Computed example of a mutant assay.
Amino acid sequence: MLIAIIILAAIIFLIVSLVNTRKKAKKRSEELGVKVSVALQHVEGLPIALGTLSNLLACQNKLVIDSKKLSFDVPYDRVIKYSTQNVSGGASKIKSPLFVVHYYDKSGAQQSITFTSTMFDLNKFVIDFTKALNRPENSLEVGESGTVSL
């Protein structure tokens, strides 16, 4: 009987914790104006451990990466592009595709941050996150004089 009460209390505690965590995440998403989000495992590019679960949030004007107690952001004017890269083996033994954030750091040097997931089609997120940038890279605009702006 005592074991059943302990198990029930543990289940209730877990449910309450999950609900509170979800409420905090929803509130943060609303505050940041999140358009698209996904949770991926960090591979390299940030000062956190390999495999750390990270939430990528495409917001109104920046990319936010929440990872445990650390948060990183890259303003969209410094994001170059998002891409996927297939990797097999190597030192980290990663065999799944990578989601890559290409950006300029504060000094203007080109950098990248990579993530992986075995659960998601990362190509879909490249499309979704690129749309969140609100850039017309894939469309041609014809001006009044008939010229095409590149």
Rank of each mutant, 00 (worst) to 15 (best):
44 E>A: 15
45 G>K: 10
46 L>N: 03
46 L>T: 06
47 P>G: 03
49 A>G: 06
49 A>W: 03
51 G>L: 10
51 G>P: 11
52 T>V: 11
54 S>L: 07
55 N>T: 15
58 A>D: 06
58 A>K: 12
58 A>S: 11
58 A>H: 12
58 A>I: 14
59 C>K: 06
60 Q>L: 09
64 V>F: 02
66 D>C: 04
67 S>V: 15
68 K>S: 08
68 K>M: 11
69 K>S: 12
70 L>D: 14
71 S>V: 15
73 D>Q: 12
73 D>V: 06
73 D>C: 05
77 D>H: 13
78 R>I: 10
78 R>T: 15
79 V>R: 02
79 V>E: 01
81 K>C: 05
81 K>Y: 09
82 Y>Q: 04
82 Y>T: 13
83 S>Y: 08
84 T>R: 04
86 N>A: 07
87 V>A: 01
88 S>T: 15
89 G>F: 03
89 G>V: 10
90 G>V: 15
91 A>N: 12
92 S>K: 12
92 S>V: 13
93 K>H: 14
94 I>H: 01
95 K>P: 00
97 P>N: 04
98 L>H: 09
98 L>S: 03
98 L>A: 01
99 F>D: 06
101 V>R: 01
102 H>F: 04
102 H>C: 03
104 Y>Q: 14
104 Y>T: 12
105 D>L: 08
107 S>W: 10
107 S>V: 15
107 S>C: 03
108 G>C: 05
109 A>T: 13
109 A>S: 11
110 Q>C: 00
112 S>Y: 08
113 I>D: 00
113 I>E: 01
113 I>H: 02
114 T>Q: 09
115 F>Y: 03
116 T>F: 11
117 S>K: 07
118 T>F: 01
119 M>V: 08
120 F>Y: 15
123 N>M: 01
123 N>F: 00
123 N>C: 01
